[in-house]
């Protein structure tokens, strides 16, 4: 028996473990630094109501980013998350306002519609072998159009569904701790993040998501039905977009059919800032959540500082590039 150089095998392992923790720490530290920086720059930034406004601004983008993370980890991409969210909101509107069904049914219909659309995208990708970029681009346009058709191009209001606006605007936490009226929308975001993190880290579905992104052919040759698992992941992402649809509809107390285009790019930006690799196989929900928070803090903070709107966009773009570059540098050094 030979003695293969064991020392050289051990060392990169330790470096990698450190790298992983280091990165999460970095993203989190950046978030904290932004918060501190803005607090120093403006006395109005760090106040409960503004923090809640930031969290609320994160909620929808955060949920969409979670959905996008799942698909991106498999090595795919989902461009339809924004318009799918709108589509699900419209479905909720049809079920609740036009058909007058009870609240719970509307929620279920929206999530179900999301999962179904995700499954359809997944079928395009897995069975028909259409590249994910194209399949979900098509889906994005289909859903944008369908939202306008189904709604009759008018916003659908939820005035007749008591309690609908409470899904996002109400505050269960606020009822227990009156000093901390965190809206339910934010609570739902964190619950979704917890669920998604569990699925990714602790279930077969999650493990196959990473495996697909890491080496799809190897997974297929291991006898795994890759098509089916891929479709399940797209369906799960779709269902999460459905929850996003409920959140935004509840927040606006209406389903706005023209909304949604452009949201997919912000979701993907949050995913990327959070350190998920666009080539798949690597990523965390915690990272995505921090990424979404960084974007919301940045936008809000620049506004509170009254930075001209033109420049806010420039800064956001610069931050995205810096964040991804930092990730590349880090990986280049450790990997």
């Amino acid at each position: 028996m030979t003695t293969v150089s064991e020392a050289s095998e051990k060392k990169p392992a330790r470096g990698l473990a450190e790298g992983g923790a280091y990165q999460k720490l970095l993203a989190f530290a950046s978030l904290i630094m932004l918060l501190i920086g803005f607090s120093i720059a403006s006395p109005n930034f760090m106040q409960t109501s503004n923090m809640i406004a930031i969290l609320q601004a994160t909620s929808v983008n955060g949920v969409l980013a979670i959905a996008a993370t799942l698909v991106i980890i498999t090595g795919g991409i989902d461009l339809s998350v924004g318009t799918l969210m709108t589509f699900c909101a419209v479905i909720a509107g049809v079920v609740l306002t036009y058909l007058g069904m009870p609240l719970l049914l509307g929620v279920i219909a929206a999530i179900g519609a999301g999962a179904l659309c995700g499954l359809i995208s997944g079928t395009f990708v897995a069975k028909m072998k259409i590249p994910p970029f194209i399949a979900t681009l098509g889906m994005m346009l289909i859903l944008k159009g369908l939202s306008l058709v189904i709604s009759g191009t008018r916003p659908i209001y939820f005035n007749d569904t008591p309690g609908f606006d409470l899904i996002s605007r109400g505050s269960l936490i606020g009822e227990v701790f009156p000093a901390l009226p965190i809206p339910n929308g934010v609570l739902i975001l964190f619950i979704m993040a917890g669920v998604a993190a569990y699925i990714l880290g602790r279930t077969v579905l999650g493990r196959y998501a990473f495996a697909l992104g890491s080496n799809e052919e190897a997974v297929r040759l291991s006898g795994v039905n890759t098509d089916m698992w891929k479709m399940r992941i797209y369906a799960l992402a779709g269902g999460i977009c459905g929850i996003g649809g409920i959140l935004i509809a509840s927040r606006l107390n209406s389903a706005q059919p023209a909304l949604g285009l452009g949201y997919e790019l912000e979701a993907i930006a949050a995913v990327v800032i959070g350190g998920t690799s666009l080539s798949g196989g690597r990523g965390t929900i915690l990272g995505t959540l921090i990424g979404a928070l960084i974007m919301a803090v940045l936008t809000n903070g620049l506004r509170v500082l009254s930075v001209a709107q033109e420049w806010q966009t420039v800064v956001t773009g610069v931050i995205i590039i810096l964040a991804v570059y930092a990730d590349m540098v880090r990986r280049g050094k450790t990997g």
């Binding site: 493990r207 990473f210 495996a211 890491s214 080496n215 052919e217 997974v219 690597r282």
Partner: peptide
């Protein structure tokens, strides 16, 4: 075709 190279030994054994 054989390994999910980005994943660890445990996951590859169980794949």
């Amino acid at each position: 075709f054989g390994l999910a190279t980005g994943m660890n030994v445990r996951d590859n054994v169980a794949l």
